[in-house]
Every structure is written in structure tokens, then in C-alpha cells.
């Protein structure tokens, strides 16, 4: 028993202490995957805040956006034109979703809307595979002028390897969050978005068109999905396997609180780092592969202490 406690509670920390460069490397890897989780979660939060729809299709929107980009480029469209076209495709998707799915289902219970977005997921998987084919594709990283090499950072008596694409991803993610924050706080449409997020009926009564807002948030989520897709595609490749990874955004979301943008970012980082540390330092004790469920367990543990997530609005219940 004492030996077991020692391997679980002491050994991993000794490892961290004796190989600090490796520890930093693990932290960095966790941070990067955390940023990608956070980006997917960001798309969820945008939509959930403005329309109370739990958008299950966010994961497949990431795949779909990346697939369209690669697919268009294969047809001979220059990379940046393809990027522009992809933004237009996401706009078209947002309009179509609002028209064909959200508007007829307005005022239905949450679970029905949730189901409708799973229907949308199936639809987009079928469409994506039909049009672009199901085999994994290589993201057009260099055509989009994204760096591909890596830095070697000599520190702590060893070296830490930083992929340049990861650094680019971190910078782009930070820039995107900053832009979103400015749009939310400073522009007219941002104010309308916040009003809708606060109270649908009150927003309607002061003359905010809910339909427009929904198109805007779905479009914003689509653009975030496109950025996520590019980043993720550059790290591995563009395939439908990403969809399962996108489910990781769910624990991120509930950890941060469903309605909070900073929560999504923080949640993403906590889950990303926690999962990598757990897998590297404790995973071996359980035979490995614990990455697949550790995120959910971390989220569950947090939820038991704070049922509304870290930054979520306090749930007030009345009879």
C-alpha cells in the first residue's frame, strides 16, 4: 500500500523535478492542445450565449471548414482566395442553419435543439464525405504562409522543442479572442449580442432582430471553426477523426461554464495541460491511453464542487 501511494503521489513529482526540460515540454504540448480545445469551445460558447442552442455540430463545422479549404485548393483555387471562399461558405451555412433549422424550431426545449444540431452533424458528415471524400488530407500550411519549422529552446539543462506552427496557433488564437472581445464590448452588434445573451425577450422588445443575431453568431462560430480547422489540420491532418477529438470541447465547456468566453479559454488550458500531465506521468500506471477519458473526469471533479462551472452564471432555482 505504501509503495502504491509512493508511485502515485511521489514518483511523478520526482520525475518532474529531475527532468525539468521534459516537464516544460509536456506543459507546452498540453498548452497547445488546450488552445485548440479552447477554440472549439469558444465556438460553442458564442452560439450557446446568444441562442441557448447547445451546438453539437461545432466539431464537424471545424472539419467541414478545413475540408472545404483543402478541397478548394485542390481544385486549383489559390490559397488565400480559397480562404475567402471558405469564409463565404461558413456564412452561407450560418444563414441556412438559421433559416432551415433554428427559425422553425424557435421556442422548443433545449434537448430538441440539441438533437437538431446532431442531425446537422450527420448531414455535414455525409455532405463533406460526398463532396470532398473521406480520406485524410494534408492541410495547405505553407501556401497560407504559416511557418512549419521548429525552434529549439536551450533551457533548464536540456532543450525544449517548440513547433513554429504551435506558436502561430497560440498567437492567432490570442488575436482572435482579442478581436472577439473588442467586437463584443465596443461595437453596436456586440452590444446587441450581449443583450440577446442576457435575455431574449427583453432584447426583442427593444428592437433587436433575433434572426440577424443568430446568423451573426453562427457565422462567428463558423470563422472560429475555420481557424481551428486550419490549425488542427496543420498539426495532424484533415480527417473526420477530428470529430471525436472535438467532443473534448464538452468537458472544456462545462469546466469553464457554458456561457463564459474566458471560461472556455481557461477550461481549455486546464483540460489540455491536465490531460497531458496525467497521460505522461500517471498514464503508465494504468496501461496508457487514459487521455480518452481523463478530461471528462477532471470536468466531473470540478463540477461536483462548482455545478455551474468555473465562470458560469450561478444557477438560481426557484419553484
Amino acid at each position: 500500500m505504501g509503495g502504491l501511494l509512493h508511485t502515485v503521489l511521489v514518483d511523478p513529482f520526482v520525475q518532474m523535478w529531475t527532468l525539468p526540460d521534459f516537464f516544460v515540454q509536456v506543459l507546452w504540448e498540453g498548452l497547445v492542445s488546450g488552445i485548440l480545445y479552447a477554440l472549439i469551445a469558444l465556438g460553442f460558447v458564442l452560439i450557446f450565449k446568444a441562442s441557448a442552442v447547445f451546438n453539437f455540430a461545432q466539431g464537424i463545422m471545424v472539419v467541414f471548414a478545413a475540408l472545404s479549404l483543402v478541397g478548394l485548393h485542390r481544385l486549383g483555387v489559390p490559397a488565400f482566395v480559397a480562404l475567402g471562399l471558405c469564409v463565404l461558405i461558413m456564412l452561407a451555412l450560418a444563414v441556412a442553419v438559421e433559416r432551415l433549422v433554428l427559425r422553425p424550431l424557435v421556442n422548443q426545449p433545449d434537448i430538441i435543439l440539441f438533437m437538431a444540431t446532431i442531425g446537422l452533424t450527420y448531414f455535414l458528415i455525409g455532405l463533406g464525405e460526398l463532396v470532398f471524400g473521406g480520406e485524410p488530407k494534408v492541410m495547405i500550411t505553407s501556401e497560407l504562409l504559416l511557418p512549419t519549422g521548429s525552434y529549439v529552446w536551450e533551457t533548464l539543462g536540456g532543450r525544449v522543442i517548440l513547433q513554429q506552427i504551435d506558436i502561430a496557433a497560440a498567437v492567432i488564437a490570442a488575436a482572435m479572442v482579442a478581436v472577439l472581445a473588442v467586437v463584443f464590448q465596443r461595437t453596436k452588434i456586440g452590444r446587441a449580442l450581449r443583450a440577446v445573451a442576457d435575455d431574449h425577450q427583453a432584447a426583442l422588445s427593444v428592437g433587436i432582430a433575433l434572426e440577424t443575431i443568430w446568423v451573426v453568431v453562427w457565422f462567428a462560430a463558423g470563422v472560429v471553426a475555420l481557424a481551428t480547422g486550419i490549425m488542427w489540420g496543420a498539426r495532424s491532418d484533415v480527417s473526420f477523426a477530428l470529430q471525436i477529438v472535438a467532443l473534448k470541447a464538452l468537458p472544456v465547456l462545462v469546466l469553464g461554464g457554458l456561457t463564459s468566453v474566458p471560461g472556455a479559454i481557461m477550461g481549455g488550458l486546464i483540460i489540455g495541460i491536465g490531460e497531458k500531465l496525467g497521460e505522461i506521468y500517471w498514464g503508465g500506471l494504468l496501461g496508457g491511453g487514459i487521455e480518452s477519458w481523463l478530461a471528462y473526469l477532471i470536468a466531473l471533479a470540478f463540477l461536483l464542487v462548482r455545478p455551474q462551472g468555473l465562470f458560469g452564471e450561478r444557477i438560481i432555482e426557484r419553484v
Partner: peptide, 10 residues
Amino acid sequence: SLIVIGALII
């Protein structure tokens, strides 16, 4: 069939 099922569900 995936497309049709997705659309039918909606």
C-alpha cells in the same frame, strides 16, 4: 444516406 438521415431528423 447520412445526409438524408440528418435532414430527416431535422
